[in-house]
Amino acid sequence: MKIERLSQDKIRIFLTFDDLLERGIQKEDMWREIPKVHELFSEMMEQAYSELGFDASGPLAVEVFALPAQGMVVIVTRGKTDSHHIGYPDTDDDHDDEVYEMEVTLEQSDTVMYAFRDFEDVISVSKKLLSSGISEDGRLYAYQGKYMLAFDPAGSEPSKYHAIIALLAEYGEAASVTTAVLEEYGKVVIAAGAVKEICNHFE
C-alpha cells in the first residue's frame, strides 16, 4: 500500500492486487459494502494519518479506480458533502461517536499505464512495440520527473493486450496514477500515436 498527498485535502492510495489478496479481498469486492472493505478503508485512513498527518474526520469523497494489471487507486478528498453517505466506524477510541461520511465513486479503467525514469527506455520500448507490430498507438506524459506511456487497448485481443503489458514491464514499472491525474497535474508530451511518433523522431 502506497500513500501520497496530492494537496492539503486530497490523498492518493495505491493498492496492488497483492495488497487486496493478503486481506482476502477480490477486486470485485471493492464494489460491495462488506466488513473486509470497511476494515481496509479504516487501515488506509490510519496509515494516511500516521504517514502524512491526514485527518479523515468529517465528510470524505472517495474515488476508487480499478486499473488493469496494476491494482487499484483510491483518491480521498476531505470536505465534500453529498446526500449519499456510507458510515464507516472510526477506530479511534477517543472518537467513538464519529463515522467516516463517504461519497463513493467507483470507476473501472482499461488504460494500461507504465512509468519510465529514462527517456531512452521510452524509445527502446516504442521501437519494440512498433517492430513487433503490437502497437503504434499510445499517449506520452511527463509527470513528477518520469515519463508515462498510456494505452487504451479496448477491443484488442487478449494476446495483444498481454504482449503490450509484457513489453512495457520489461522497461518500466506499472504506474499508480490515473489518466485524470496525469491530465490535471502532468504534461501531455504526445497526445496520440506516441509509439509511432517516437520511432519517427528517434530512428
Rank of each mutant, 00 (worst) to 15 (best):
K36A: 04
D9Q: 14
F17T: 04
T16S: 14
I13A: 12
D29M: 09
T16P: 06
L21G: 15
I25F: 05
P35I: 04
Q26V: 04
Q26W: 13
K10P: 08
E33D: 10
R32I: 10
L15N: 01
D18N: 15
R12S: 11
W31H: 15
R12P: 15
E22C: 15
W31L: 08
W31S: 09
D18Q: 15
T16M: 09
F17Y: 13
E33T: 02
E22H: 12
D18E: 13
M30F: 12
K36F: 01
G24I: 09
R32Q: 14
I11Y: 09
D18T: 08
F17W: 10
F17I: 06
L20V: 02
H38D: 03
M30H: 03
E28A: 14
L20A: 06
L15C: 04
G24S: 12
I13Q: 08
M30P: 09
G24W: 00
D9S: 13
D18F: 14
Q26R: 15
F17D: 02
R23M: 02
L20G: 00
G24M: 08
Q26G: 15
H38C: 00
K10N: 06
I34T: 07
L15D: 00
K10C: 05
I13Y: 03
D29L: 07
D19R: 05
E33Q: 08
R23L: 12
M30I: 13
I13S: 09
P35D: 01
D18S: 11
H38Y: 00
R12N: 09
D29Q: 08
P35R: 06
F17G: 05
P35V: 02
K36D: 02
F17H: 09
E22L: 11
K10W: 02
F14K: 02
E28P: 04
L21T: 13
D19P: 02
I25E: 01
R23N: 05
D18H: 13
K36Q: 06
G24Q: 06
T16A: 08
L21E: 13
D19Y: 07
E33F: 05
D18Y: 13
D9A: 10
F14L: 14
I13M: 10
K10M: 07
E33R: 07
V37A: 06
R12L: 08
K27H: 12
R12V: 03
E22Y: 11
L15G: 01
K36S: 00
I34M: 13
D19N: 10
D18R: 15
